[in-house]
């Protein structure tokens, strides 16, 4: 039972990862791309690693993976925010409807 739950979590996490990568390609502008990857990656990551925790059960490996998940949930948005802040101050203006792809 636990394995099927882990499988479901891993598949959902994989789906978010793929969607994040496709969003990185298709979106026309820098801000929309960050919009896609910043969130999808953190969530996909958390789900896949949580699936692996369910698969592993209660031992040292799960504790390490839990620490990794918490660490990534804190640092990944922070890094994306740092990039956004720098890009905005460097004058990367957002894309408006009708503009060509940047």
């Amino acid at each position: 039972m636990l394995n099927t739950l882990a499988l479901i979590f891993i598949v959902i996490g994989l789906f978010f990862m793929i969607v994040g990568a496709i969003g990185l390609i298709r979106f026309p502008d820098f801000y929309t791309r960050v919009h896609a990857t910043g969130k999808c990656d953190t969530l996909g990551e958390g789900m896949m690693l949580f699936g692996i925790i369910l698969y592993e059960g209660m031992n040292l490996i799960s504790v390490k993976i839990l620490l990794l998940v918490i660490f990534i949930f804190v640092t990944s948005p922070t890094a994306v925010h740092a990039i956004l802040n720098v890009a905005y101050t460097h004058g990367v203006e957002p894309w408006k409807k009708g503009d060509e792809r940047r």
Binding site: G20, A21, L24, F30, R33, V34, T37, G38, D41, S76, A79, V80, I83, V86, A87, H90, V92
Partner: peptide, 9 residues
């Protein structure tokens, strides 16, 4: 910036 966000991903 596009390259940086791609490397982060």
């Amino acid at each position: 910036e596009n390259r940086l966000i791609a490397v982060n991903t």
